[in-house]
């Protein structure tokens, strides 16, 4: 059995009633290097619960880096110090005895905080519902091989489609922009022939939704690309920009769709 080490955690705490939070300090002993970061928080929460203290609210689900549920800022690093990975893939062997680890939630106006490290990212779903799809009803599709797709283009579409919707791009962005997220979905469907018929309305509506929900503007600092767990490239943002200009100045005007969003558990006032 490996020997554990001791760490100090400074964790952002915010109750459901408070508007703003504060840091609270916890000490944790016997941290095993093979533990994942979230398992370390599990151990801490078990300990807090047993001591009659309030556990830290923190979200995760699949714990294998694909569901996009977890997301923390650890010592200022979005998704932790490992490059291009999620918090759940981070292991404690990255830390050493005596480390002080600061943990904060993702922050951005369109991601209202709920409690402690838990935030509401339903704004990303709303961007998708504005056009991140191909309008085809189940049962009406043509034979799958009837439209060949160039292999390298299909790979490019897949690169963009790999997005897990974790919101790290927004969290890392100095402007809280969601352009990498939005650009990735627009790119995936702009590259594939299946997405072609709705290219114009898609980019116009998704950008409209993105603006409406209060995300910032890209200033091309590429912090998003640097943290993206799925290594989605900023060339997707360029493609979105291109699509936007194309839609405005080259294409016929498509009818604009009204934005209809689902209601999230945390209400964003503008939407009511």
């Amino acid at each position: 059995m490996e020997k554990g080490f001791n760490i100090t955690l400074r964790v952002w705490k915010k109750s459901q009633d408070e508007k703003d939070g504060r840091f609270e300090t916890y000490k944790l002993e016997n941290v095993i290097p093979d533990m994942s970061f979230l398992e370390m928080l599990d151990v801490l929460n078990e300990k807090l619960l047993k001591e009659g203290k309030e556990p830290i609210a923190v979200e995760s689900d699949c714990r294998e880096g694909i569901c996009g549920c977890c997301g923390l800022v650890i010592n200022g690093d979005v998704h932790g110090p490992d490059e291009h990975s999620t918090v759940c893939q981070l292991h404690m062997r990255r830390f050493k005895d005596g480390d002080i680890i600061t943990i904060e939630p993702f922050k951005a106006s369109p991601f209202p905080p709920i409690k402690d490290l838990v935030i509401d990212r339903s704004a990303l779903d709303k961007i998708i519902s504005a056009g991140g799809y191909v309008s085809v009803n189940a049962g009406s599709a043509p034979e799958a091989n009837s439209i060949p797709v160039n292999k390298s283009l299909a790979e490019k579409a897949m690169d963009a489609a790999a997005c897990i919707g974790c919101g790290a791009c927004v969290a890392a962005c100095p402007n809280s922009a969601a352009m990498l997220f939005t650009g990735a979905k627009i790119s995936q469907l702009a590259i594939l022939p299946q997405g072609n018929p709705e290219r114009t309305s898609r980019v116009l509506n998704m950008v409209k939704a993105m603006d409406f929900l209060g995300f910032g503007n890209c200033s091309n600092e590429y912090e998003c690309e640097a943290v993206c767990p799925k290594e989605i490239k900023i060339s997707n943002i360029a493609r979105m920009n291109r699509e936007f200009l194309r839609a405005n100045f080259i294409c016929e005007e498509d009818p604009e769709m009204p934005l209809v969003f689902h209601k999230s558990t945390v209400d964003i006032p503008e939407e009511e």
Binding site: N75, T102, A108, C224
Partner: peptide, 19 residues
């Protein structure tokens, strides 16, 4: 961008490698 809640949002703000 200011409204979107950008700028040194975190206690420990650091570049992620893009800036």
């Amino acid at each position: 961008n200011y409204k979107a809640g950008g700028f040194s949002k975190y206690e420990e703000s650091k570049s992620q490698g893009g800036r």
